[in-house]
Amino acid sequence: MKNIQGVYKVAGLTRVNDIYYRLALEAPELARLVKPGQFIHIKVSAGLEPLFRRPFSVYRAVGGKVEIFFEPVGKGSRLLAGCKKGDLLDVLGPLGRPFSLPSRDVRQVVFIAGGVGVAPFMLFSDQIVKHKAAKVLLYGGRSKAHTFPLNEFKKNAVKAFVATDDGSAGVPGRVSELFGRIDIAPTTFIYACGPRPMLAAVAAFAREKGLKGEASMEEVMACGLGACLGCSIPTSQGYQTVCHDGPVFDLQDLVFP
């Protein structure tokens, strides 16, 4: 196997708040290889239930450890939330097409995230601290409890703006309330990750204003390797697999039926 399958030790599981968890794996090779926007495909159960692996964006890769940031919502993620330090997890990765790094002439990097979709941007902002562009994060969450990792972004000189559905933090409403923070210029580059309706709004906005950008898509996955063609989504180039052709796609290629 070309370095993509490994069994790694859980270095720690941290309960971040009422909603989120962080899980760290001791995986130096993986930490070295992974690029922002790529995911790891974790075998969450030793048995057949659930059968499929679960994909998670890499949230951080420092000190030989790879971290994911997740919310337990179902069978697979709840099993992960029950992991203990020292447990072994079978992982495929890093997989998928990463975000492209902002070119030197980019003056504003705009991260747009919904909910747990913020995960890949932590790694991304870690890796572009030296880039001279202004960096902003427009973050939409359900409530204040969903806004935890933002102080970490501040350390990476990313200015965060928040919108919450219930108005308990930042501006009340959807993340689109924050689009005014985006410089309408050819030197702006958007990176988005979150629920599909949010990405549709971002894509429509970018199209209307002529902005460039990329978005990370989600779809139910089986293999994660481009083998089953199960995670295909319609794009302007025909059906493409989220796991292998994506998860990152150019905003202009996305089709929202």
């Binding site: 057949l48 239930e49 659930p50 059968l51 499929f52 779809e219 139910v220 089986a222 089953c228 063609l229 199960g230 995670c231 295909s232 989504i233 319609p234 025909g238 059906y239 039926p257």
Partner: peptide, 23 residues
Amino acid sequence: QQGNPPKRICETPAGMINAIGIE
């Protein structure tokens, strides 16, 4: 053949259902 529209797969107890459409 371009295959079927999503969702093309779903997980079931100890199995899966697929309708890829021979893409």
